[in-house]
Design a protein around this nucleic acid. Structure first.
Length: 852
RNA sequence: GCGGGCGUAUCCCAAUCGGCAGAGGAAGGGGACUUAAAAUCCUCCCAGUGUGGGUUCGACUCCCACCGCCCGCACCA
């Protein structure tokens, strides 16, 4: 038989164009349409259950890469399967279109950032369509559109009015050559990425969002959402809640009060010295004019801490980072008094105490805190043991090099001696409160979110600074505060700042003062992406940011798919936004994303794909050679969605071979004149037809379960088994009954494969004579009668070791099964002694225990 | 250092509640078809589950300890 070869290039582009241009996956009515409320409310019926499936929108820097292809392929298989199982799926796509690369292109090559961005978006859009991803093209958004960032600014004003946005001075990275503040990503080894200048930390007044107000709720809310445990743990660690006490120490000379925060108030008697953050106000007041101290501060200031202030990731991979790095400190010319025992202890300033955490000052307990012990050994401070380890370890203050932070009994602490340390902690806090020396206190590692960016390809902060009125929000009816189209990127520093009119062509919205100026900073792009999932509900509306009623229906997002790299920042900020917007009455949900799936990365030969390593594989190379279906199926077959895919280990060739086989089985069936719909008529003397029908039922049943669990790799394996079964049935010339069973099996196979390989299944669906699109069909269900077996082979163990097998009718009683097992010769040979115990699991196994 | 994850055939990977270690694929050997190759088909080969204990009638699966690798966080008092 001369068979037409599998040539995906001959039909994939045409189908892709048709799907994209015909609005094949447009949700009707749109999510914002009130009719949705009824449609969504119906459990099934007309519309099916409303389901919001979301994948992290891409940043448009160049064409799609393999990482995108993987996320979208997983997401699309999920979405297509959901549609076939009767869900009304909201499946939007957009672009996280503000950001530094556009600005860099403008600076380096003189390109217009808007044109650069839109060209990339167009390229990505075409590739997404070509790859058959079934996004709803009617709800596209781009965060750089004024129609979008107008509402980003509106949210900022809402937060400002609610005192969730505020301005204060913070230390930032300052590039003295380019005369600009740099984001942490732009600081490499302490130098500006572009200028190479040593970056300084300078104070600058910046905008913050008060995420810390939600610290407890952000922590507690994690228990209620279905996210990977590691992501939840990362957020828990980031929020960093700790319970301890604030304690009032005083200076020995003039009795000035200095509060410390400690999680171990039970070790107060072990405090042998005192440490201030280098920039602690009391220290600055006393040491401000001292040149040696100024030199010390300059040295310390090289250490960046913007990452904590801004929430941005630092480079942080050098030896200087983390615990155990050398501490720098100076002895201050005064002492402190411990309030519980009146002892005088020396005061230091050291870089290991951070002004930003706690109170900026600590009591140092070297015996029970490793950092303090390291510092004490370096600077010759005393060590006093106040906890005796429970495990018998003996601590020698003179020689110990490892602080004891484990369980133990309080010693050398006056009235508290002999108590377990936890009990001491409780009592000390209570006593401090009674005596007015301190109080219990909860602290967080989480800082407020610094959102000011001295960049020009972002949403302008909608604030006017007036000499009389101060910071005044731009009235909402004057939004958006537009980004000028004629920014000059050749200037040093901020193009917005340098623009001829942007900053100064404004009057105070409150008093009309012409001396007012616009804020020239833009917002962190993470602000843009903290609410885009709401805007998808009505992306073109000029009346509202999103329809509140529809948000009630669609939020939280049922399923969010994206990379693990956003474990903290984007996912934490989005959670914060939803909670804040909820409290402002704009959404009803507590959380943005009910379920999260973090797909693995696509790597090559064990390393990340990168241009510099020369191991880059582009999606295009793969689909131009093998077709899109092969690319998609290869990715899904390579591993479970959460696992990394090493492209060096996978075989698009093998996948292409299998799809070719599916193709051949289909077109050959058509060539033989096989019917579309299965018709069980005809004789089936050798049972081949029944065997195939059973194999198809098993595949449908198993693949269905695996789809539900999102294990596409094993679902594909089930389909491969089914193709093997069809092949087996056709080994000898088919009878009419076999031909009918083949038709059924092929139909099932195409339905099972459709979410993964949408093109070949659609093409064969038509060729096999089925009506409509394969993607509009109901998900197949297995005929239970075909899943029931007549007989089962049951393993028989003797003393837990497999000794034989017996084949018995399904449902054989325990007694009969045991008898059959004992009668099996291979088993009987091992029954040398008395059988002391018999374990029978009907239809599953028998275990005969001989030895006592 | 803390947290999370992973170690199964040559390789990638499977194995509901603990119940026959192999579903699927890749690579490799042999064969059929072919003038030949490709393609296709048939067939063979391939581990006792990182190590050591424990629980159990029975452990890849549960528990403990250790080894190795990966990821995240890391001076947060």
């Amino acid at each position: 038989m001369d068979t037409e070869r599998y040539d995906p290039a001959s039909f994939e582009p045409g189908l892709a164009d048709r799907w994209a241009s015909s609005g094949a996956y447009t949700l009707t009515p749109p999510a914002a349409d009130p009719a949705h409320l009824e449609a969504g409310a119906a459990a099934d019926g007309g519309g099916g259950r409303a389901y919001y499936a979301l994948t992290m929108f891409p940043y448009p820097s160049g064409d799609l890469h393999m990482g995108h292809a993987e996320i979208f392929t997983i997401h699309d298989a999920l979405v297509r399967h959901l549609r076939m199982t009767g869900h009304r799926v909201l499946n939007p796509i957009g672009w996280d279109a503000f950001g530094l690369p556009a600005e860099n292109a403008a600076r380096k090559r003189g390109e217009d950032p808007r044109a650069w961005t839109y060209a990339n978006i167009e390229e990505q859009r075409r590739t997404i369509a070509r790859l058959g991803y079934s996004f709803d093209w009617s709800t596209v958004l781009r965060t750089c559109d004024a129609e979008y960032y107008r509402w980003t600014q509106w949210i900022f004003l809402e937060l400002l009015d609610a005192d969730l946005a505020y301005r204060r001075e913070a230390l930032v990275n300052w590039d003295p050559v380019d005369r600009t503040v740099l984001a942490n990503e732009q600081v490499i080894d302490g130098r500006g990425e572009r200028s190479g200048a040593l970056v300084e930390r300078i104070p600058r007044t910046q905008w913050f969002l008060r995420i810390t107000r939600y610290a407890d709720e952000l922590l507690d809310g994690l228990d209620a959402i279905e996210w990977p445990e590691r992501v939840k743990n990362a957020q828990r660690a980031w929020i960093g809640r700790s319970e301890g006490a604030e304690v009032r120490f005083t200076t020995a000379d003039d009795g000035a009060e200095v509060v410390v925060y400690t999680t171990r108030p039970d070790t107060l008697y072990g405090a042998t010295y005192f440490v201030f953050a280098p920039e602690h106000p009391l220290v600055l007041a006393r040491m401000g004019d001292d040149p040696e101290y100024a030199a010390f501060r300059t040295e310390v200031s090289r250490r960046s801490e913007i990452e904590r202030l801004s929430g941005l990731d630092g480079a942080g991979d050098d030896d200087e980072a983390g615990a155990g790095r050398a501490k720098r400190g100076v002895r201050l010319p005064f002492d402190m008094v411990n309030p519980v025992d009146g002892r005088t202890i020396p005061a230091f300033a050291a870089d290991y105490v951070l002004m930003e955490y706690g109170t900026g000052a600590i009591m140092a307990v070297p015996a029970h805190d490793q950092r303090d012990l390291d510092f004490a050994r370096q600077y010759g401070a005393d060590v006093r043991v106040v906890v005796r380890p429970d495990d018998g370890t003996v601590l020698d203050p003179a020689t110990m090099t490892e602080a004891w932070a484990g369980d133990g009994t309080t010693v050398n602490s006056g009235e508290y001696d002999g108590l377990p340390w936890q009990e001491t902690k409780r009592r000390v806090i209570a006593d401090l409160e009674t005596r007015g020396l301190g109080s219990g206190r909860v602290n967080y590692r989480l800082r407020d979110w610094l959102i000011s960016r001295q960049r020009s390809w972002g949403a302008p902060i909608p604030v006017v600074h007036c000499p009389d009125c101060g910071e005044v929000g731009v009235p909402r009816d004057q939004l958006p505060v537009r980004l000028p189209d004629d920014l000059d990127f050749t200037v040093q520093g901020s193009p917005l700042e340098a623009h001829p009119t942007f900053k100064h062509d404004v009057v105070c919205p409150r008093c009309g003062s012409a001396d007012a100026v616009r804020d020239t900073d833009t917002m962190d792009t993470f602000v843009d992406s903290s609410w885009y999932f709401l805007r998808y509900l009505d992306p073109t509306s000029e009346d509202h940011a999103w329809p509140v009623a529809a948000a009630g229906r669609w939020l939280p997002v049922d399923q969010y798919t994206g990379g693990i790299e956003h474990a903290i920042l984007h996912l934490l900020y989005s959670r914060f936004f939803v909670k804040a917007l909820r409290d402002l009455g704009h959404v009803a949900a507590d959380e943005p994303f009910a379920r999260l799936l973090n797909q693995g990365q696509v790597i090559m030969g064990g390393a990340a794909m990168s241009k510099s390593l020369g191991n880059l594989v582009a999606p295009k190379e793969v689909y131009e050679r093998f077709g899109v279906d092969t690319l998609r199926a290869t990715m899904l077959f390579a591993s479970a969605p959460e696992d990394d895919i090493d492209w060096a280990d996978v075989s698009p060739t093998g996948m292409h071979k299998w799809l070719s086989r599916v193709w051949r089985l289909g077109v050959e069936h058509v060539a033989r004149g096989g019917s579309a719909a299965g018709d069980a008529a005809g004789d089936d003397a050798d049972g081949r037809a029944l065997a195939l029908r059973r194999a198809a039922a098993v595949a449908v049943e198993a693949a269905g379960r695996e789809y539900a669990a999102r294990k596409y790799n094993t679902a594909i394996a089930r389909m491969m088994e089914l193709t093997n079964a069809v092949n087996e049935a056709l080994r000898t010339p088919p009878t009419p009954a076999v031909e009918a069973a083949v038709a059924e099996a092929l139909r099932d196979l195409l339905l099972l494969l459709a979410p993964i390989a949408p093109f070949i299944t659609e093409e064969l669906w038509g060729r096999l004579g089925h009506d409509g699109s394969v993607h509009d069909q109901r998900w197949p269900e297995a005929d239970p009668a075909l899943l029931v077996l007549d007989e089962v082979e049951v393993p028989v163990q003797v003393d837990g070791k497999l000794r034989g097998r017996v084949t018995v009718p399904v449902g054989t009683s325990r007694e009969d099964l045991e008898a059959a097992a004992r009668a099996e010769p291979a088993v009987a040979a091992h029954l040398t002694g008395e059988v002391v115990k018999v374990v029978v699991v009907p239809d599953r196994m028998v275990n005969l225990v001989v030895k006592g």
